[in-house]
Design a protein around this nucleic acid. Structure first.
Lengths: 364, 364
DNA sequence: TTGTAGGCGTTATCAT
DNA sequence: ATGATAACGCCTACAA
């Protein structure tokens, strides 16, 4: 079957047919069965008006019955467009990332794009390999989410001559197109919320890798405190790594202070998770003794005990925006360079008015 | 540049070179510059021993300098293998799924495979489109994780003549190759744990869609109870949807009973999250008044308050196993048909010995 | 050790 | 409205 003895065997892959089928039907197989040339088949399948309605119908029927699927790889070779994008993430298992990816994938799919997913694990060498693979696959565009080592390979990307969109770029300025959240504003608002509840000893648990997002969030924290004329005390600024484990230790430090904070501003929700765990392990209560706020509004933020006050980052939406932007760029349109998304304060139950008893040592 | 005026312009895409480059260099461009034929370039780049060491070195140098990347699409067309796999998930934002995907992606990458990710959102029509896209991309293999509507499109998949591996197949028997967890055993063990703590009124919050995994987990619950001669009471068996929200309502029902349970066995960790939330909202305490157990051991299980006793499902490992299995199948080897992974009980702090006071109404 | 020729399955460009 | 023919970029014979 599918050999070249013209017309002799019209045997085409029928569902459940012979086991001896060697390959999927090609456009020529369909053409032979329909007794037309293969360009005609091509036209019919693309609903070109240039082909007789009746023959077109017949061709489509045959194609369907034989389970014919045009090869995207052959098409890609001639059209020089694969309708494929590459997506680089630092960790797909991270809840933030997976939400973003969900938004990207949905949008891509809706527009007929397939997406290659690659997880760098924040390993530069792996990122190199990924980019190389994307180049070889001839992707039409690339999205990179919160790369930690972006600067290392971004020059490489520029060689590929395909548009790139970054999400939560950690190296602003290096690239043009990006989607990002208002980090400064977000933390400022949530810190103001704490100040408004009477807190004066407000700690910040940041990230130790010096990311742009951490720098910005810390700036928001600082702004809110300075606006309230509260000094930013070095002993109240500690560092985790954006994950619960390290945040626990950071919180332990804070609680070992002679005057522990009455509230804690966390770099993200994962950090808040660890902070709350530490607080509970010290037999203290959230928010009665210490208020805690996060950033991201991950799914779990609604289900911690108590539910977490945090800053919502519209993750799926950001993925969608990045993809929509990339689609524009891929079709040659120039597009918005830098999309900044507004954060939103979500007040739940991990924050409360500061207790008098505890608050007496504030300000120093 | 890259036009056909032989040898006249050796201009190849140098990083940062002219903006007028129209396309990436092809193997012929490299051949022309190196003054060899393109098959020789091909051989050199594949480290074939058939090419003179010196020329090979020269070719590789030129290829590198011009940023040449062999086109996987052209190669795929001639070799009929794309070194690409398709991955269908029902929801990438689900923490369970994203862990599994992480394992798959890592393994695929290590073996030189690229992965297409597609999220069906549990929508049958979308799944159809996904499979069609995978067929057109000529993927070498497919992995499907916990499909809800698997039966609908699996026949379609079989037309594609590529190997398929299912993870946590919800339609056992329909397909050959799968990786799954020991559901019955897992829940039996965790339910026995509850029985061992003196619990007699043990509820089960299941899943309403009649998945195989729910059926099996319920069977484990039943086995443990029957072994302890505890009747399975219908009013203690309720249904959520595998997510916290619905589980809250299910737990509400349970708490409205005249004799509420002293322990709750949940279909998964997400369900447990909702159950605990409901319990807390009723002013009750876990585990003092009610013990709660989950299934999966998601990342968050360690950071709930109290930390959740659960059954560990080695998610990344399962993804890895599925991918390794698929790789074998793709290279023509026959492979293990059904891989069953052992669950592991993880005892944390959401379970405790039943209180006398509360326990007096047990057994009825 | 290297080069020539052919073909993979499409779409695009011409004719007719 | 349709067909013949030529790419697309690579690999694999086979020839030299």
């Amino acid at each position: 079957m599918f050999d070249d003895d013209k017309g002799k065997t019209d045997g085409v892959a029928q569902p459940g047919a012979s086991k001896r089928i060697l390959r999927q039907p090609s456009i020529k197989d369909i053409a032979r069965i329909a007794r037309v040339s293969h360009p005609t088949v091509s036209r019919a399948l693309q609903n070109s008006p240039l082909v007789n309605a009746k023959t077109a119908e017949r061709i489509r029927k045959i194609a369907k019955e034989s389970g014919y699927r045009a090869s995207a790889v052959a098409r890609g070779l001639v059209t020089r467009r694969t309708r494929t994008i590459g997506l680089v993430v630092t960790s797909i298992a991270d809840p933030f990332t997976s939400e973003v990816v969900s938004g990207i994938e949905q949008t891509a799919n809706d527009h007929g794009y397939s997406v290659y997913l690659a997880d760098s694990n924040a390993d530069p060498r792996r990122e190199q390999k990924i980019v190389q693979a994307f180049a070889e696959q001839r992707v039409d565009g690339i999205i990179v989410t919160s790369s930690r080592v972006g600067a290392l390979y971004l020059p490489l990307l520029s060689e590929m001559m395909v548009p790139i969109v970054l999400i939560n770029d950690q190296h602003p300025g290096a690239f043009v197109h990006s989607v990002m959240i208002g980090n400064v504003e977000g933390v400022r608002v949530v810190a103001e919320h704490l100040v408004g509840l009477g807190h004066r000893r407000i700690a910040y648990i940041g990230d130790q890798y010096g990311y742009q997002s951490d720098t910005e969030r810390f700036a928001g924290y600082r702004e809110a405190l300075e606006a309230a004329r509260i000094p930013v005390l070095p002993e109240l600024v500690v560092r985790g790594d954006g994950k619960p484990e390290a945040a626990m230790h950071a919180m332990d430090e804070l609680l070992a202070l002679s005057h522990p904070p009455t509230a804690v501003c966390c770099y993200n929700d994962m950090t808040a998770l660890g902070a709350m765990r530490s607080i509970h392990m010290h037999g203290l209560s959230v928010p009665d003794e210490i208020s805690v706020v996060g950033f991201d509004d991950l799914f779990v933020a609604s289900y911690t005990q108590p539910p977490l006050t945090t800053v919502r980052q519209p993750m799926r939406r950001m993925g969608q925006l990045a993809m929509e932007n990339l689609i524009k760029l891929m079709s040659g349109e120039e597009s918005v360079v830098r999309i900044k998304v507004k954060p939103e304060l979500v007040v739940r139950e991990s924050t409360a008015r500061v207790k008098k008893r505890y608050g007496k040592t504030a300000r120093r």
